[in-house]
Computed example of a mutant assay.
Amino acid sequence: MTAQRRRVIVDRDVCVGSGWCVNLAAAAFEIDPVDGKARVQASAGGTPDELEEALDSCPVSAISFAGGTE
């Protein structure tokens, strides 16, 4: 619910391009073909559960939410 109101952020300085976020929430994330790192393609994309799972599954904790609360 509220996860969709929060802005999803990928810290590209930290991202290692594992692709877990894309596998778990393809509507929200994509891998940049230039540098191989994740980027947000649609902050409101993906279900709240998918976004939370992507955040929790990132091996380097490069994904976060800005604004709103859980």
Rank of each mutant, 00 (worst) to 15 (best):
M1D: 15
M1K: 11
M1T: 14
T2S: 14
T2N: 12
T2K: 10
A3M: 10
A3V: 08
R5W: 11
R5V: 15
R5D: 14
R5E: 14
R7I: 13
R7P: 02
R7D: 12
V8K: 04
V8D: 03
I9H: 04
I9C: 04
V10I: 09
V10F: 01
V10K: 00
D11G: 01
R12C: 06
R12L: 05
D13R: 11
D13I: 12
V14F: 08
C15A: 06
C15D: 06
V16E: 10
V16R: 00
V16Y: 12
S18C: 15
S18Y: 10
S18E: 11
G19N: 02
G19F: 02
W20I: 05
C21E: 04
C21Q: 01
N23F: 13
N23M: 11
N23C: 11
L24F: 09
A25D: 08
A25V: 05
A26W: 06
A26L: 12
A26Y: 12
A26I: 05
A26K: 08
A27E: 14
A27V: 01
A28Q: 13
A28G: 09
F29Y: 13
F29S: 09
E30D: 11
E30R: 11
E30A: 15
I31W: 00
D32F: 00
D32W: 00
D32V: 00
D35C: 04
D35A: 12
G36R: 00
G36M: 01
K37P: 04
A38L: 07
V40P: 09
V40L: 12
V40S: 06
Q41R: 15
A42T: 14
A42H: 09
S43F: 13
S43L: 13
A44I: 06
G45W: 09
G45T: 07
G46V: 13
T47N: 02
T47I: 10
P48N: 04
P48T: 09
D49L: 15
D49I: 15
D49Y: 15
D49S: 09
E50F: 12
L51W: 03
E52F: 14
A54M: 07
A54T: 11
L55R: 10
L55F: 03
L55Q: 03
L55M: 07
L55E: 05
L55V: 03
S57P: 01
S57C: 13
C58W: 02
P59N: 01
S61K: 03
A62E: 00
S64E: 02
F65R: 12
A66C: 03
A66Q: 05
G68M: 08
T69P: 07
E70S: 08
